Simulated scan of single mutants.
Amino acid sequence: MCQMTYKTRRSKHHLMQTLADTPGTRMKLTIFLTALLAVFLTPSLSDDSVSLTNQGNDGGSVHQTVNIDNAKNIANINTNAGWNSWNSIWDYNTGFIALRPFAKKSCYIHRMNKNVVPNIQELARLTKEKKDHKGPAEAPPRSLQYTVTNTKADNLKQYGEPIDALCRGVPSYVAQEVQGDSFFAFGGGACVKAGLLFILDISVCGGVGF
C-alpha cells in the first residue's frame, strides 16, 4: 500500500513537471507571475489621479482628468468637452508639452515654461486642492500663449516616448511662446484652450491646422 502511494505521488509530480515544461503552460505561468508581481509593486509607485469638473462658457460641463506618474515625471491631462476635447502630455524629463485636440488632425509641441508651469509635485498638490476646495482663496490662473509655426516635428522621439505615442500618426508642428503685443501680432486666428482648470490657462493659436 505504501509503495503504491509513493508511486502515485511520484506520478503526479512527474505529470505536473511535464505540464510545466510545455511552452503554453510556461507562457501562462510567466504571465501569471508578472501580473502577481505588478500587484505587489503598484503600491510602491507614487502616482496621482485627480478629476476636475467645471461649467463651460456654453453651459456644458468640462471634465478634466490629471494623471501624474511621479516615477516617470510625466503628467497626462485628458479633457472631455465635446468637440473641444483634447489630450496633453507634460514631459518633465524632456521639458516639452504636447497637445492633441480632438477637432484637429494634428499635434502641437512646445517647450515647457518652467517659470510658469508648476513642477510635478506642485501640480499634484494644486489639483488635489482644487478638487477638495482647500487652500487659499481662488486667484486668477496664470496664462501662457503659443502660436503654431510651419516647422514640422518630424523626429517625435526627441521629445520623449510619451509625446511620441500621443502624436504618432498625425502631422505634428512646433509651437512657440509669444508674449504681450507679439501674441496679437502672431497669434491671430482660432485658438485651442488647453490649460488646467483653475490653475493654468494655455492658448495655442493660429498657424498650420487652424
Rank of each mutant, 00 (worst) to 15 (best):
Asp48Ile: 04
Asp48Ser: 14
Ser49Arg: 12
Ser49Thr: 14
Ser49Asn: 10
Ser51Pro: 00
Leu52Gln: 01
Asn54Lys: 15
Asn54Glu: 15
Asn54Phe: 00
Asn54Ile: 06
Gly56Thr: 05
Asn57Gly: 14
Asn57Pro: 08
Asn57Leu: 13
Gly59Ser: 12
Gly60Asp: 14
Gly60Met: 09
Gly60Ile: 01
Ser61Glu: 14
Val62Trp: 04
His63Cys: 06
His63Thr: 13
Gln64Pro: 07
Thr65Tyr: 00
Val66Gly: 05
Ile68Arg: 09
Ile68Glu: 06
Asn70Arg: 09
Lys72Glu: 13
Lys72Phe: 08
Asn73Ile: 00
Asn73Leu: 14
Ala75Phe: 12
Asn76Asp: 11
Asn80His: 12
Trp83Glu: 14
Trp83Pro: 03
Trp83His: 08
Ser85Gln: 12
Trp86Gly: 02
Asn87Lys: 14
Ser88Lys: 13
Ile89Met: 08
Trp90Val: 12
Trp90Ile: 15
Tyr92Thr: 09
Tyr92Arg: 09
Asn93Tyr: 05
Thr94Met: 09
Thr94Gln: 12
Phe96Tyr: 15
Phe96Pro: 01
Ile97Met: 15
Arg100Cys: 10
Pro101Gln: 13
Phe102Pro: 07
Lys104Val: 15
Lys104His: 14
Lys105Gly: 13
Lys105Met: 13
Ser106Cys: 13
Tyr108Ser: 06
Ile109Ala: 04
His110Asp: 03
Met112Ile: 09
Asn113Glu: 14
Lys114Ala: 12
Pro118Leu: 07
Pro118Met: 06
Asn119Asp: 15
Ile120Cys: 01
Gln121Pro: 00
Ala124Ser: 15
Ala124Cys: 01
Arg125Ala: 05
Arg125Met: 11
Leu126Cys: 01
Thr127Phe: 04
Lys128Ile: 03
Glu129Thr: 02
Lys130Pro: 00
His133Met: 08
Lys134His: 06
Lys134Gly: 08
Lys134Asp: 08
Gly135Phe: 11
Gly135Arg: 10
Gly135Ile: 11
Gly135Met: 11
Ala137Glu: 15
Ala139Ser: 12
Pro140Asp: 03
Pro140Met: 10
Ser143Ile: 07
Ser143Asn: 05
Leu144Pro: 11
Gln145Pro: 02
Gln145Lys: 13
Thr147Asp: 05
Thr147Tyr: 14
Thr149Cys: 08
Asn150Thr: 07
Thr151Arg: 09
Thr151Gly: 00
Asp154Met: 06
Leu156Ile: 03
Lys157Tyr: 03
Lys157Leu: 06
Tyr159Met: 03
Gly160Tyr: 11
Pro162Ser: 04
Pro162Val: 02
Asp164Gln: 12
Asp164Ile: 00
Asp164Asn: 09
Ala165Asp: 12
Leu166Asn: 05
Arg168Trp: 00
Arg168Gly: 02
Arg168Cys: 00
Val170Phe: 05
Val174Cys: 00
Val174Met: 07
Gln176Tyr: 04
Gln176Pro: 01
Gln176Met: 06
Glu177Asp: 05
Val178Leu: 11
Gly180Phe: 06
Asp181Gln: 12
Asp181Trp: 06
Phe183Thr: 05
Phe184Tyr: 13
Phe186Gln: 07
Phe186Leu: 15
Phe186Ile: 02
Gly187Val: 07
Gly187Trp: 02
